[in-house]
Amino acid sequence: MFNFLINPYKFNKFVDIIFKPLVILTLLVLTAGLFLVYFSPLDYQQGLTVKIMYIHVPSAWLALLTYAIMTIYSIIGLAFKIPFSFIINKAIAPIGAVFTILCLISGSMWGKPMWGTWWVWDARLTSVAILFIVYLLIIFLNQTFENREVREKTIAIFILIGSINLPIIKFSVDWWNTLHQTASISKLSAPSIDMSMLQPLLIMTIGFSMIGVIIAILRIKAEILLRKKFL
C-alpha cells in the first residue's frame, strides 16, 4: 500500500493521480488559512505581532519534519539499499533549507519588537542556525564526488550525524535557560494557546505541509526523469 514511498514507478503512478486534486486542495486550505489568520484575535500582550506566529511556527515544524523524513530515508537507504531514498534526500533538502531560513527570518522579525533584539546566541536560536548550515552542507555535498554511489552514501551518513541536532532543537528550551519561550503545544498537556489562535495555526501548518509536498513531488519526479536519461 505504501510501496509508492520506496518505489519510483509506483511513486510516479500514485502522484499522477493525486497531483491535481492536491494543488486545488492546497489553494483552498491556504486561502482559508489566510482568512482565519486575518480574523484571528490579537494577543493580550503581544498585540498584532502575534500573527508572525502563523508563519514562524509552521516553518519551524516543517524544517524539523523535513529533516526527520531525510533521516528515516537515510537509514532505510543505507540499511536496505533502496536507491529511491537517496533521490528523495536530494529532492527535499532544499525544501527543508527554505523552511529553516523562513523560520529564522520570521523569528528575527518577531524578536525585534517583542524581545528587543534581532538575534541572540541562545540555545534554541543557535541550534536552528546549525540546522540551516547542515541543510546547506547537504545541498553542497550533492555537487561533490563524481561517483554517484559514494556521493549518496556520504550524504546519507552526513544526514544521520546531523540528525542528533533534532532533539537538541526540540528540547533546547527545556534543558537550558533561553530567551526563546518554551513550547506552547505538547502531547503531555493541554496547549497553552487559545483555541481561536490554535485553529488558524493548525490550518496554516497543513497548508505549509501541502506546499512542501507539492514542491517535493515536482522535484522527485524531475530527479527520476534525470536519472532515467543518464542511466
Binding site: P41, Y44, M114, W115, G116, T117, S184, S192, I193, M197
Partner: peptide, 12 residues
Amino acid sequence: VYAKHDENYMPA
C-alpha cells in the same frame, strides 16, 4: 535589556 515572554497566547 531583553523582554522574555512565556508560551501562553490568549486573545485580548
